[in-house]
Design a protein around this nucleic acid. Structure first.
Lengths: 202, 202
DNA sequence: CCTGGAACCTGACAAACGTCACGGGTCATC
DNA sequence: GATGACCCGTGACGTTTGTCAGGTTCCAGG
């Protein structure tokens, strides 16, 4: 029985590379290959893959959100999240989105194929080192709104920009930022943004 | 005549994937494969590859700097820079470092093999879209010192931190930051850092 | 030799930021 | 029905930033 695969990654090079290698593997069949997160759902509904390999960093929709949509729309398809950055928060969010597996790209190819087979068989796969880091570090200390403000702060320059984007008063934004800075042990906004990004909390 | 290849990329997955695909290609032989930029020079000196495939983002030493060292130490080895992010400044810096080619990872595998063959034959290869963007945008407007300050500002939280790291007075740092912000048309430090990063000027 | 640019520094100022204290409101839990 | 968490807001305070004007060195080019 061959395993039907969906590939989602914005990097054409690694997508084509993986396609070819999976073809050589014998028991894999790549039935869909997309470069954007918002194309995953439609492609999966059409091609009915057994396992979807989703990159976290993608235009349109990130892999974790795509995973959540797949769980609702194509429940038969199990998700394996693949990412460049081993952020503890990513793993947590992925698992909450119903992902069956989570691997960092910093792993050999054979580990990937083994993981896919395990996921296809109904199992779960998680990078052990990352799992330990996630459990040790715990969940995000940020409230949803604090995370929103911090996320917006990544691209907005001033407090006024953040307030405008979120339809809040500037004072409120400053309060959320202050709370986030304190919780993260940062010394100012940009350090807080960096820390939150490193943990995958935004 | 087979082309001897050196692979340098911090992502194990794409390195092993490329290794296997190159083996299948027939006229390629991967003679070295490293995960850190500071291992490139030694590996190249030992294995004498024809072409080195260097990722820009690597721990230890970035691919562009590794390219410059190779040019001095192993001049017979020609460098092909491979990167995830198509930043105009990267291309410029790569070419100034003596790279023979520059490709973004957002390209099919066949384009990569074609590029390697061309580079091995003594030619030069550059992503056309990126070349146009680079020429249109011109060189960095920042003085070396301004770029230093901006680079340090990425990881330092306060002006005092930057000043300490660069052995400058706080006033001087503020002046450089102010100049950089003005030149980049930014509204504050963090926006300036973002813009400079996007262009590959830091 | 003189000019210009880049590297440094100082001092001063307004604006933006981070903090604090204090309101209000909703909602789930006990 | 009280408690607590989260959501929003205000006002005030001190600190940090960004800007500007001024100065000193050094070095390359005309």
């Amino acid at each position: 029985m061959t395993i039907r695969l969906l590939l989602a990654d914005d990097q054409e090079l690694i997508r084509t590379a993986l396609e070819r290698l999976f073809d050589l593997e014998g028991d894999f069949a790549v039935v869909a290959s997309v470069s954007r997160g918002d194309e995953v759902e439609e492609a999966a509904a059409r091609t009915r893959p057994d396992v979807a390999l989703l990159d976290v960093e993608m235009p349109g929709l990130d892999g974790i959100a795509a995973c959540a949509r797949l769980a609702a729309r194509v429940p038969a398809c199990r998700c394996l999240i693949l990412t460049t950055f081993g952020r503890p928060g990513f793993l947590r969010r992925a698992m909450e989105s119903g992902a069956a597996g989570f691997l960092v790209k910093d792993a050999p190819f054979d580990e990937l194929t083994a993981a896919i087979r395990q996921v296809a068989a109904g199992g779960r796969v998680v990078d052990p080192a990352l799992a330990a880091a996630t459990l040790a570090r715990g969940a995000s200390p940020l409230t949803p709104r604090e995370a929103d403000v911090l996320r917006t702060a990544r691209t907005a320059a001033t407090v006024a920009d953040i307030a405008a984007a979120l339809f809040l008063s500037e004072g409120t934004v400053r309060n959320y930022l202050s709370a986030a800075i304190a919780k993260l042990g940062a010394r100012n906004r940009s350090e807080a943004v960096r820390l939150a990004e490193d943990e995958g909390w935004v």
